[in-house]
Write a protein that binds this DNA or RNA. Structure first.
Lengths: 149, 149
DNA sequence: GTGCTTGCAAACGTTTTGCAGACTC
DNA sequence: GAGTCTGCAAAACGTTTGCAAGCAC
C-alpha cells in the first residue's frame, strides 16, 4: 500500500464495506467483484479497465475484461467507484472517496490532480455567466501546461 | 448558404484559397479534397467525418471515409480545418475561422457555442493559479446545464 | 432452486493503416 | 514520369452485448 493510497484511505470504503453494500442492494458479492475491488485498492493511481483485467500487469490475478467493465459500471452506479476521461486513451477508474478535479495538458499528456474546491470559483464564474455547472472530475480541464505553452 | 454560414464567411478562406495553400506546400489539389472543402462550406454546423463522407446525407456526392479522415488531418495540419470532441460520439469538424468555445451538458448533450473571448477571464484565472492555459475549443467545458442541475 | 453473474466470443462505433491503382503536377 | 493521393479492405481501439454455464444467496 503506497503512501498516496494510505493518504486517501480514510474516505475510501474497505473491500468488505463495498461487498456489504452490494449485498444490501440484492447484488452478489462474487469473487470477480472482490478481485476488482482489491485491484482498485492496490492501484495507487487511476487505472484503465484493461490494466485491471491484466491484474495491474501481473501483480494480481487477471480477470475477464467484459466482466471488469460490467462490474465497474455496477460499482459506479452504487457510488463506490468513479471514472474520468483523459484527452486520449481509455477511461480511468478510481475508488470513490478519492474525489479530485483534473487538469490535463493536451500536448504532453500531463495529468495534474487538484484538490476538490480548488476550482470552485472557476465553477461559480461559469455558472453565473453561462448557467452551466462544470464538472472537472469527469472530463478534465484541457489546455496547454507551462512547459508546452 | 445559410445565414449562420454567411456570418462566418469573412474569416473563412474560400475553397480555392485552401487548394492554393495545399499546392503551395507541395500537396495536391485533388478532387477529393475539393469536395471535402465544399462539403465543409456547405455544412452550416460542425460535422462528423461520417456525415462528410455521406455527402451531408445525400445533398452532395459521397466520398471515401478513410480519405475523409486523412484529408481532414492534412487540412488541420495546415490550419484550414479544426476539430473538437463532444462528450460522446465522433469528432466534429469545422472550417478554420469559425473559432468558438463550447459548453456541453453531460446529461442532455446540449452543446452551446460561446463567442471567442467570453471565457477569457476563466482562462486567465486558471492560468494564474495552475499554470495551465485551457482550450475550450477542443474539448468543451463539460458540466450540467441549468435544466439538468 | 432462483436468478444474478461469469467468461467467452462476437459486435459495436470511431479511427487508422496497408496497398495497388489513379491522378496531379 | 515522379511522387502524391485515392478507394477498398482490413485492422485497431475501447467498449458493449448475447449467451450458456456457474455461482451466491
Amino acid at each position: 500500500m503506497t503512501v498516496a493510497h494510505t493518504g486517501l484511505a480514510l474516505s475510501t470504503p474497505t473491500v468488505d464495506d463495498a461487498l456489504a453494500t452490494l449485498r444490501s442492494k440484492g447484488l452478489r458479492a462474487s469473487s470477480a467483484r472482490r478481485l476488482l475491488l482489491e485491484t482498485l485498492f492496490a492501484a495507487d493511481e487511476p487505472v484503465s479497465a484493461e490494466r485491471i483485467a491484466a491484474g495491474l500487469d501481473g501483480r494480481l490475478p487477471r480477470s475477464d475484461l467484459a466482466s471488469v467493465y460490467r462490474n465497474l459500471e455496477t460499482l459506479e452506479r452504487l457510488g463506490l467507484v468513479r471514472h474520468f476521461h483523459l484527452v486520449h486513451g481509455p477511461g480511468l477508474y478510481v475508488l470513490a472517496g478519492n474525489e479530485r478535479d483534473y487538469l490535463a495538458c493536451e500536448r504532453c499528456g500531463a495529468l495534474r490532480p487538484v484538490m476538490p474546491g480548488a476550482l470552485d470559483d472557476v465553477r461559480d464564474a461559469v455558472w453565473k455567466r453561462f448557467g452551466l455547472r462544470p464538472r472537472f472530475n469527469h472530463y478534465p480541464l484541457v489546455g496547454l501546461c507551462e512547459d508546452c505553452t
